[in-house]
Design a protein around this nucleic acid. Structure first.
Length: 293
DNA sequence: TACCAGGTTGTCT
DNA sequence: AGACAACATGGT
């Protein structure tokens, strides 16, 4: 049972379906599923569940669980925060070097509603541990399996993702059955590490970016890219500049950085784009994928 | 069939 | 430091 559609206070400018799709399914979160009947996305984070759609008039609208499941509904404020619509991100975007960088400017113009989703850090870490050499729909599928098998049920057909304490108690063979392949070992290793180091993740928000990154890099299966995605999408460390295959292609082809290695590309990104490098990264990621279609 | 996917790790120069 | 294969699984 769902409440009626209600506009969120983010509709000063019209939304396109395309904008919402890129925001929810553009490779930041893998917990949003499209429902063709309602033309809406259903999904959520932690113990929250909701539906989002773009109305025919270009409003971003939400619909929440009601009745017995009303406790699963986040507040409107929480939704806005999750979607990344903070004054801080507005300021970060304004201060990106788009005035002198036509590639970035074009990317921002193509995706004017794109923000960095503010996800629970534990979920961001799990999600990107599952992401290695997988395509976005397959990451989504793997996480769905993890949630349905090991996560806490919220409704008859929606479980939240398992927390790390739960994951630490799951045999490797059982993790494997979700189809996540060799990533299961990384998840088991990280779960075990976190179990032996209580409070390890909760210390990270206070750390400056370089130290936070070093801390995450100690986790098994977490390299520079997964660390930076976790820091950006989970911990709001905006300097984090994840370099994946798409960003590497972008910098090589659009920025002409042909024989730069990954480490050099990361450094270029943080220096060229500055304190909002992660936000710039998301615009470029969306733009490059758009250009490749 | 062969190759690729929002990578990380171990091994060998 | 830099190059390279292995790692599971599903898709084209």
């Amino acid at each position: 049972m769902w409440t009626a559609w209600k506009p969120l206070p983010l509709s000063d400018q019209p939304w396109r379906f395309f904008d919402l799709k890129e925001l929810l399914q553009g490779g930041q979160s893998f917990r949003w599923f499209f429902e063709p009947e309602s033309k809406a996305f259903i999904g959520g984070w932690a113990g929250f569940l909701l539906r989002l759609r773009v109305s025919p008039g270009g409003l971003l609208e939400a619909s929440f669980p009601k009745g017995e499941t009303a406790r699963l509904a986040p507040s409107e404020e929480a939704v806005v925060q999750y979607l990344g619509y903070s004054a801080e991100q507005t300021d970060l975007q304004e201060n990106l070097p788009w005035r002198s960088d036509p590639i970035l400017r074009e990317a921002i113009e193509q995706f004017p509603r794109l923000r960095i989703l503010q996800q629970p850090p534990e979920e961001a870490l799990l999600s990107f541990l599952c992401s290695a050499t997988k395509q976005i729909p397959q990451i989504q599928q793997g996480l769905w399996q993890l949630a349905q098998r090991f996560g806490q049920p919220l409704t008859v057909d929606w479980n939240q993702l398992p927390d790390w304490e739960v994951l630490a108690g799951i045999p490797l063979g059982d993790l494997r059955e979700t189809g996540i392949g060799f990533r299961a070992r990384h998840i088991a290793g990280t779960a075990d590490f976190l179990k032996r180091n209580p409070g390890y993740l909760s210390a990270i928000p206070e750390l400056p970016y370089p130290k936070a990154r070093s801390a995450l890099l100690k986790l098994p299966g977490v390299g520079t890219k997964v660390a930076d995605c976790t820091l950006l999408f989970g911990f709001q460390k905006w300097e984090a500049f994840p370099v994946d295959t798409w960003i590497a292609k972008t910098l090589q082809h659009l920025y002409g950085l042909h024989d730069w290695n990954l480490s050099q590309l990361e450094t270029f990104g943080r220096i060229h784009f500055g304190r909002g490098a992660g936000l710039a990264q998301q615009f470029l990621f969306a733009r490059m994928r758009q250009l490749s279609k």
